[in-house]
Design a protein around this nucleic acid. Sequence first.
DNA 1: TTCCGACAGTGGGGTCGCAAT
DNA 2: ATTGCGACCCCACTATCGGAA
Length: 512
Amino acid sequence: MLLTRLADVSREVAATSARSRKTALLAELFREADADDVPIVIPYLAGRLPQGRLGVGWKVLGRPVEPAAAPGLTVREVDALLTELATVAGPGSQAERQRLVAELMGAATADEQRYLLGLLTGEVRQGALDAVAVEGLAEATGAPPADVRRAVMLAGALQPVAQALLTEGPPALERFRLTVGRPVLPMLAHSASSVGEAVAKLDGCAVEEKLDGIRVQVHRDGDTVRVHTRTLDDITDRLPEVTAAARELPGERFILDGEVLSFGPDGRPRSFQDTAGRVGSRVDVATAAEAVPVSPVFFDALAVGDRDLLDLPFTERHAELARLVPEPMRVRRTLVTGPKDTARAEAFLAETLARGHEGVVVKALDAPYSAGRRGASWLKVKPVHTLDLVVLAAEWGHGRRTGRLSNLHLGARGPDGAFIMLGKTFKGMTDAMLAWQTGRLRELAVEEHGWGVTVRPELVVEIAYDGLQRSTRYPAGVTLRFARVVRYREDKRAEEADTVENLLAAHPEVHP
DNA sequence: TTCCGACAGTGGGGTCGCAAT
DNA sequence: ATTGCGACCCCACTATCGGAA
């Protein structure tokens, strides 16, 4: 199959807003693909590369290459070149990557170059990724969409399911069952603004600690233990403590879901930054483990022995978990029967925060494990802080925000009245706010740059954030975690904005 | 007809590892 | 030794479509 065909379809998919039409376009192409092209075409149309990330970013891709006059590249040729690109390493590799990218781009037409650029940067912007590809696959093969979706969750990836379906038809879906040793996409949680709201929605729930670490799925089959992240990367080798802990448990075969984090000598959790740094260390794991030891804390069981627990209610899965995993290696929890029990749930949240944790997750007791979904039956509740900050600059947006000033640079008042930048945010704005702030910030602009504008520090904006963290990037030595816009405060003057001093006082546990 | 669940998009900061300087 | 880049952790929020109620 020719690359130009994919580029055309991608453009058409991007041009239509109807999801049903996107699905139909993908389905049509899936039907056309040869068996040999399927392993390439499927991920491409879902906006990803079969090789994963290739170590090329904007630095390499930014250099313009004269496009070919006529399309001729096949998807298999592209794939072969990208496979080569993925294996380049060692001294001189950057130049070699540059050369390979130039070779590829030089063989592509302008349209194909645009499409390749999207694939290589992971920004195809066609309004269709895995979920729409799954629908398209179902439509192309006549398999029930729900069955295809489930198979993808259990396989942890679209590609093997697509391959089996397109070559063997719907009966092939039978093969994709929960298997110890093969990671499945984890269930995710929605947010709720308060424990009361969460408890009212679920009616009969467990309230569990939300630990601020790295999500892990641990598979044990006899002596073999594998540890996977939320995106199913294998991090077993970085976490010897987790392997050891899994081997200690009184079960030969299981799949557990949990969080890995580090506790300090005082028994309190270390900051997310410390835990993440440890988990990210690959080279000298022994030294890293000595400085920052980690522990797994589990909250769900997906399989025990030969039993697949996914469709059981949480109550029953938890009973299995409790049989297998002793108390300190399980998250703390309390049971709540309904809205009248809210006070107890709130008390549990307060205790959890006092112990230094992030918040709680409220989980419906009757809900199955919805692998790969952001199920409505798990609701996380975290305390939210707010500040009134001053907009110092704004950056031009991309994609659907092109032409709008989007990413705001935020400052607090310093001791001498000057404004000190604390970070940026692009989150929380409606389209109306984007339009309004673009006009208002242009009025306040003192300097235009390629990336955006710097403005007179006059506009006050209320910002919500989850906490402070250390920063080497910003002058106060701290930055806001997950900052988002709540509303503009035109009733406030910049001189009334919050100060760095007050911010630091509000988070005494963070040392800049 | 209205409501709501699921998706895609828009990027944020930190940290690590690697290659280049 | 230091710097720049890319990958991959953590993540919030809005707009939109289309099926459910």
